[in-house]
Design a protein around this nucleic acid. Structure first.
Lengths: 145, 145
DNA sequence: ATGATTATATTCACCCATAAACATTTGCAA
DNA sequence: TTGCAAATGTTTATGGGTGAATATAATCAT
């Protein structure tokens, strides 16, 4: 179960150190791809397989399904952690998520997420402002603390 | 069942002693995360699992659900009580809850809460002022003393 | 009360994760 | 081949995390 928030940075070559705590569970190789809300998703090889299967099972006569498959698979990249604990984030994904210098890794249950610090902060502010509303909405999903 | 109020302090590195009474029930490892109303929540590993399951079961196509999962999981930190009874409160959580020097642990049924002393005092004052009103409101939730 | 025991607070020193700069290799194109 | 850029590897410095030691306060039993 991934959890926590880790502030990191990407170097001039687009590499970044994977937080040691997350690395333990991610392993030496894992997969990153486009995520939702402007971040990247990262899955351990095992979790990625599950995700792949879900995509495989989609009915491809459905255009929305085709689009979804393209979205996640075209963005996917197999990452190898080097001896210094770093990965290279492909240029297209960096651009997609607006990653330049300061980035944030967060654990999110079965996956990790990579955010540009700016977007992450924004996302949090927004949440703080609508907190009561969000929590109330959650009730309708059957969620209670 | 957690209960009681304990005044403590955090050191320069962000560590604090976990009240001995709470430690008995929390165990040697437990989880803290963002809470509501500006405090932190702390769960025993067992209670945390229950909470995790709730989060896992949320539908991730729902944006509100994603936001909520991010809120609690990005804030979560597995704490290990060291030989001296201390835990490290991660910097992001300290900032979130405004923990600097004087803090208050309180027991709150299935979880503990960690407050900055300032916020806790304020919270209590507010309650004292609106006591009658609050208790009356509780009736609509089916609560009677 | 008094001393013994346990809990809490504070300080210091060390080590490892990270950041950042620099060096080397590889692949490609002129 | 030669030069360049991208990718990969190495090195060093710093600061945050971690453990140990000591000081102070609170609790308990005699």
């Amino acid at each position: 179960m991934f959890m926590g928030e880790y502030n990191h940075s990407v170097d001039a070559k687009g590499r970044t150190i994977v937080p040691a705590k997350l690395r333990e569970e991610l392993g030496e190789t894992f997969v990153i791809t486009r995520g939702l809300d402007g971040c990247l998703f990262g899955y351990s090889d095992k979790e990625w397989e599950k995700f792949e299967e879900k995509l495989q099972s989609l009915p491809l006569n459905n255009k929305t399904a085709r689009t979804t498959v393209r979205y996640f698979l075209s963005g996917a990249s197999q990452c190898e952690v080097d001896k210094q604990g770093r990965i290279l984030i492909p240029a297209n994904l960096r651009e997609f998520a607006g990653l330049e210098k300061d980035i944030v890794f967060i654990g999110a249950a079965n996956r990790i997420e990579i955010w540009s610090k700016a977007k992450w902060d924004e996302c949090n502010e927004e949440y703080d402002d609508n907190m009561d509303e969000v929590i109330a909405d959650m009730e309708s999903l059957g969620f209670n603390l």
